[in-house]
């Protein structure tokens, strides 16, 4: 009961007091990041070695020149394209598989051991074998991302189906609703919040795996660019690409969060654990 009250509060308050608090969070954000930049600047000046620690100004400059030269666009495009393919593939296979496993004991008994066997082997550990089978190129990062995203998606979908309140299924049954309608109108919406959590976790895992895969086994992409510029000892460019990796990771998560609140307005997911 108290949980529901809290969320009710949360949905109603932003409209009332949202504007000033948004401005003040923004100010606090700017202040904190400003102080951080100052410390960074002072540290760079103190160390005096732009290869080890370039000043924030140099990083911003190189970021702009990388954007101007189109290098950012091309590397980001190839990373994001891989992310889209690997992630979409994992979602398209993982969600239906999780739903089916949740509803059929036989399928669960059949598939679960394989998942439990493979899951502890992280996507990154597949990189050497993958490089051997797939070669250095486009397929390897995509495959590793698929693998990384797949398990969180399947498992959270399964958890979602498992945690559907038995009373709701009974309530549908006593209204005379049949099995397929129950799956579509009760089981699926009830597990949707968990599915979305799985998607977000999967996206995070895929993004991390992608950077590792590109660092070692791809001829393009953001991870590749970081390593490329490190070999050239152009640290400002390294940091610029590190910043971009963080930015895209953040934006993708933000997008999925927005999706979460848009399509599950009833869900009060108050406990978010990364």
């Amino acid at each position: 009961m108290s949980l529901e009250e809290k969320t009710a509060d949360r949905t109603s308050s932003p409209r009332a007091s949202g504007v000033p608090s948004a401005v003040s969070t923004m100010l606090i954000y700017l202040r904190s990041m400003g102080i951080f930049a100052l410390i960074w600047y002072a540290g760079a000046w103190w160390i005096g070695n732009p290869v080890l620690l370039p000043s924030p100004v140099a990083v911003v400059q190189s970021l702009f020149s990388l954007i101007a030269s189109g290098e950012v666009a091309s590397n980001a495009a190839s990373s994001l394209q891989r992310l889209a393919m690997g992630f979409a593939g994992a979602a398209l296979i993982g969600i239906p598989l999780g739903l089916l496993m949740g509803m059929s004991r036989i399928l669960y008994a059949l598939v679960d051991p394989l998942i439990e066997l493979l899951r502890p082997i992280s996507g990154i550990a597949w990189i050497p074998l993958g490089m051997f089978i797939l070669g250095v190129g486009e397929t390897l990062p995509t495959a590793i991302m698929f693998y990384g995203a797949f398990f969180p998606i399947v498992i959270n979908t399964l958890i979602g189906v498992r945690s559907v309140d038995e009373r709701l299924i009974q309530a549908a049954k006593v209204l005379g609703v049949g099995r397929s309608s129950i799956i579509l109108n009760v089981v699926l919406p009830a597990s949707l919040p968990n599915i979305l959590v799985g998607l977000r976790l999967g996206a995070g895992a895929a993004w991390t795996a992608m950077v590792a895969a590109e660092l070692i086994g791809a001829p393009s992409g953001l991870g590749f660019a970081v390593e490329w510029y490190r070999e050239l000892l152009m640290t400002p460019s390294v940091l610029a690409f590190v910043f971009l990796i963080g930015l895209f990771g953040y934006l993708f998560d933000k997008l999925l969060r927005a999706l979460q609140t848009a399509i599950t307005p009833w869900a009060n997911i108050s406990r978010e654990v990364i």
């Binding site: 309140d165 009373r167 709701l168 009974q170 309530a171 109108n185 009760v186 919406p189 009830a190 949707l192 599950t264 009833w266 869900a267």
Partner: peptide, 8 residues
Amino acid sequence: DYALFPWK
């Protein structure tokens, strides 16, 4: 406990 569908 009513068992209302929370998403409806």
